[in-house]
Design a protein around this nucleic acid. Sequence first.
DNA 1: CAATGTGATGTTATAAGATTACATCCTATG
DNA 2: CATAGGATGTAATCTTATAACATCACATTG
Lengths: 141, 141
Amino acid sequence: MSDDTAHPHDQEAVDLTRNQSLVLGVLQQTHGPLSAYAILDELRDHGLRAPLQIYRALDKLVEYGRVHRLESLNAFVACSHPGCEDHGTIAFAICESCRQVVEITDHRLAGQLQLLAGEAGLRLNTSVVELRGRCAQCAAA
Amino acid sequence: MSDDTAHPHDQEAVDLTRNQSLVLGVLQQTHGPLSAYAILDELRDHGLRAPLQIYRALDKLVEYGRVHRLESLNAFVACSHPGCEDHGTIAFAICESCRQVVEITDHRLAGQLQLLAGEAGLRLNTSVVELRGRCAQCAAA
DNA sequence: CAATGTGATGTTATAAGATTACATCCTATG
DNA sequence: CATAGGATGTAATCTTATAACATCACATTG
Ligand SMILES: [Zn+2]
Ligand SMILES: [Zn+2]
Ligand SMILES: [Zn+2]
Ligand SMILES: [Zn+2]
């Protein structure tokens, strides 16, 4: 491969396409979970019109580890520590009142889940851990 | 209340309505997760026609602890240990190949999740733990 | 350059999951 | 009987996600 084509974001893991950048940008600016359709609404000005354009971008972003899907919300959030490869096991703390989301990685939890999966006869692939409750601010109010 | 109307399932915690019994019956016979619409298809012969009839029954069954919702599948399973009140924290082991589901309760996990929630500033309400992978049978095949 | 392959995109339609709104029915209980 | 609450039936609608198909951009190769 010749090196005459510049790669402006080479320090990042993967070059994103235009649509992927737009979708990630919206999620990063929002600081919270958004549904695919909510993302679409934010991007109509930029020419995106169909849900599939959003879902395709989200699929790739999730694959690259830049975005996570929250199963219990049918929504997506930007990863809190981009560039971090250590996404073996992630948990999310979700405030049901203000929708704030905190991303957690914990190696003891990872081990615990591996153990439980093994006891259940499951060869673990991925795990979904979503903690739901009220954040400190909302609990105080 | 007069006792002229027999209640054949009085030993169970809560009397179920007709629709609730039908929905629970389908889930128990299936030995696996079903979507609300799949349940509906099984119950058209019994006169149920609208999704809402299923969702209302499911809401109550989940409230009573007789059924659990699997967030990552948008589906529902009958509880593996009916009558057990100890449903503080449940995890599910889900085979992505054959859709077999194993229900797990583990007090160490419960403590771990409480701890993580606290560290994230979350007053925990409910937790979603769904382990995804391949079961022993599918891994062998 | 032409031919070709691959991945991203655009567009429409449709499937799948869930809820809102409103009318009705049943059954205590006074 | 009157009536209030819970359960039900029905239609319409909303949200979330995917299928199918045509096209475009770009790199490889002959
Ligand atoms: Zn992350
Ligand atoms: Zn909050
Ligand atoms: Zn259970
Ligand atoms: Zn299996």
